[in-house]
């Protein structure tokens, strides 16, 4: 197994991350469901402003890993440190990490009983304790940024899948997170809606957001990723720049995976 932290992000990308500080640090993270091991000593470091795409076959532990990073799942061994805060049983740390890490889900998970604008402004009001007017103003600004200000007063059920996913991104951004996690966000979308979501993610990456993206969109990975990690059976098998990863992967398992999907 190659050491994830050792690989320097280089290549044709404009960012120089060599002196950026560590944003996410995972050290020998393991997790079991009953007698099934979902994560097997996962170690990785993600720098500030870095965009990491996690690839791999289904059931390989990708989703479990990024869900551990904002503690939707609890890792059982190893350490996870997010922005200098270690994820332990400490209530304050959990709350701090949750409000610093935004997450977008495959199934959107918008709150169906709230209007779009309330979906976006709810957390800032009650978690960040912002005044309602300010929170709604910010929500409108974010909806404009994702391109759907005119849908603000509709219910999520009245929107198309792509629009819902854009609202979900706006909802996550409303908490002003330092890190964004994307868990197969385009998998539940009709093909014609995938692009509108990916465009927003690209823009977000260009604006300097630290991002971890689990996806099957190879085009997106090639174009946007600073680094690509390949996970299988709960382990990080290979790490590298897109050029390295797609053009001459070293591991056999990676080659097999690439030959199946490309």
């Amino acid at each position: 197994m190659s050491d994830a932290t050792a690989t320097e992000p280089t290549g044709g990308h404009t960012k120089d991350l060599s002196r950026a500080r560590d944003m996410i640090l995972c050290e020998d993270v393991s997790k079991w469901y009953g007698d099934f091991q979902a994560l097997d000593k996962v170690s990785a470091t993600i720098k500030e402003q870095e965009v990491v795409v996690v690839l791999g076959p289904s059931g390989g532990g990708k989703s479990t890993w990024i869900r551990c990073i904002n503690r939707l799942e609890i890792h059982q061994e190893g350490r996870i440190i997010v922005d200098d805060v270690e994820l332990t049983n400490d209530l304050r740390n959990i709350e701090q990490v949750r409000s610093e890490v935004g997450m977008v889900f495959q199934q959107f998970n918008l709150f169906p009983h709230l209007k779009v604008i309330d979906n976006v402004s709810l957390a800032p009001i009650w978690v960040r304790k912002k005044p309602r007017a300010e929170a709604e103003e910010q929500a409108m600004a974010l909806l404009e940024r994702v391109g759907i200000p005119e849908q603000a007063h509709k219910y999520p059920g009245q929107l198309s899948g792509g629009q819902q996913q854009r609202v979900a991104i706006a909802r996550a951004l409303a908490m002003e997170p330092k890190i964004m996690l994307f868990d197969e966000v385009t998998s539940a979308l009709d093909p014609e809606m995938v692009k509108e979501v990916l465009d927003i993610m690209k823009a977000l990456a260009l604006s300097g957001m630290t991002m971890m993206v689990v996806t099957h969109e190879m085009g997106f990975a090639k174009e946007v990723a600073d680094r690509i990690m390949f996970m299988e059976e709960g382990q990080i098998v290979e790490v590298g720049t897109p050029t390295h990863f797609f053009e001459n992967p070293t591991e056999d398992r990676t080659k097999l995976f690439l030959s199946q999907i490309l």
């Binding site: 050491d3 932290t5 500080r21 560590d22 640090l25 050290e27 170690s43 470091t45 440190i81 200098d84 805060v85 270690e86 332990t88 049983n89 400490d90 209530l91 304050r92 959990i94």
Partner: peptide, 24 residues
Amino acid sequence: MTAPTTQQRVSHRVPLWRDVIVIK
């Protein structure tokens, strides 16, 4: 593996009143 700088700044001890397991 080299120890990253962040590691030193993280405290391992969780005060009882903030430990979710204890609270639970």
